[in-house]
Computed example of a mutant assay.
Amino acid sequence: MPDVIFNGPEGRLEGRYHHSKAPNAPIALVLHPHPQQGGTMNNKVVYALHHVFSRRGFSVMRFNFRGVGRSQGVFDNGQGELSDAAAALDWLQSVNPDAGHCWVAGFSFGAWIGMQLLMRRPEISGFVAVAPPANRQDFTFLAPCPSSGLIVHGDKDEIVPEAAVAKLAAKLSAQKTITVDHTVIPGATHFFTDHLEPLAAAVDAYLAANPDRIR
Rank of each mutant, 00 (worst) to 15 (best):
D98K: 13
T40I: 01
F63I: 08
I178Y: 02
W112A: 08
G100S: 14
P122S: 15
I185S: 04
W103V: 01
V95W: 10
H195N: 12
T193W: 09
R120D: 14
R136S: 13
Q93L: 14
G39Q: 06
L172K: 09
D90Y: 09
N24W: 04
H19T: 12
W91I: 02
P33D: 08
H51F: 12
D204L: 10
M1A: 11
V160S: 05
F191Q: 10
H19M: 11
D181Q: 13
M115W: 10
M119V: 07
G187V: 05
D84G: 04
Y47F: 14
H190T: 00
D76Q: 14
Q36E: 14
N210Y: 00
R56T: 08
L199N: 09
G126L: 11
C145Q: 01
A169W: 03
V52H: 00
T193P: 00
R136H: 15
G110A: 11
I27Q: 10
G114I: 03
H182G: 02
E197D: 13
A88K: 02
V74H: 14
N42G: 03
K176D: 15
I27H: 03
L13P: 07
G78L: 02
V184W: 07
F192L: 09
P161N: 03
P35R: 04
P2L: 12
G11P: 02
G69L: 05
I178V: 13
H101Y: 11
V74N: 13
G78N: 00
A48N: 04
E162T: 13
I124Q: 06
N77A: 12
L196R: 05
L92G: 00
V180G: 04
A105L: 07
F141K: 00
R121Y: 07
G149C: 06
T177M: 12
F63M: 09
F107S: 04
P122Q: 13
G78R: 02
T40Y: 01
D155P: 01
V95E: 15
R12Q: 14
